[in-house]
Design a protein around this nucleic acid. Structure first.
Length: 205
DNA sequence: GAGTAGATACTAAGATCGAT
DNA sequence: ATCGATCTTAGTATCTACTC
């Protein structure tokens, strides 16, 4: 409350407005008093809702999805969740790199399948494009969203856009930074992704 | 930018209730 | 009787909008 709020109200008008202010504030205070229990009730409901959701999520994940565990203490739910998260295996970096490459390859395959049927470009252009993209793949030697990676300038590398894989030469035409022969050729309608791995690989989309 | 008021969120303590 | 969940309430902290 500002100290000068009432000091300047020496006139009759000032007294009236001060009284109005006072009654307004009293009203607001009363309103708050009646609302507070409701707010607290709502807050508890939010907590309980989220805990229930957490329970339904965590039980199947730890293999305890049975009626036997329907009655759990809140502390149990939280403990189970903490333990589950602590036990999650840390994915090594090279695994994530492999995953990234697999995702890239999956994109490439889809593109190779879709491009010819889309009739956006001729067969030769399609081949050239997929061939080019395929040759780019070995350059993908970083994980674009890895955390704790900082550029030499101190900026957060994970927030930067993925580095360009192509360097433009002075003439303006694009050239591969490190052209290398394709490890294998991709052709339209080629299917090499094992179905059981399709859901576990990282994809850039 | 600092100070203030009001709103909202959080915390703690005590009371109550139902299950075991 | 004990335990855990819930509710109520008061006090406190934090956020936000506003004024000077």
């Amino acid at each position: 409350m500002s100290p000068h709020l009432y000091e300047s109200n020496t006139t009759e008008h000032g007294q009236v407005s001060a009284q109005l202010n006072k009654s307004k504030r009293k009203e607001a205070s009363e309103l708050r008093k009646t609302l507070k229990p409701l707010m607290e009730k709502r807050r508890r409901a939010r907590i309980n809702d989220s805990l229930n959701q957490l329970k339904t999520l965590i039980l199947p994940l730890i293999g305890k999805d049975s009626p036997r565990y329907s009655k759990l203490e809140k502390a149990d739910i939280l403990e189970m969740t903490v333990r589950f998260l602590q036990d999650l295996p840390k994915t090594p970096l090279y695994d994530r790199l492999d995953s990234y490459r697999e995702g890239y390859r999956a994109c490439l395959l889809q593109l190779a399948n879709l491009l010819p049927s889309s009739k956006l470009m001729g067969t030769e252009a399609c081949d050239r494009l997929t061939d080019y993209l395929e040759r780019c793949m070995p350059l993908v030697s970083y994980y674009p969203y890895s955390h704790n990676t900082r550029s030499p300038t101190g900026t957060d590398a994970s927030r930067e856009r993925p580095r360009t894989l192509i360097q433009l030469n002075p003439t303006g035409s694009s050239a591969l930074h490190r052209p290398s022969p394709p490890s294998h050729s991709l052709r339209p309608n080629q299917q090499i992704i094992p179905a059981d791995r399709e859901n576990s690989i990282w994809r850039p989309w």
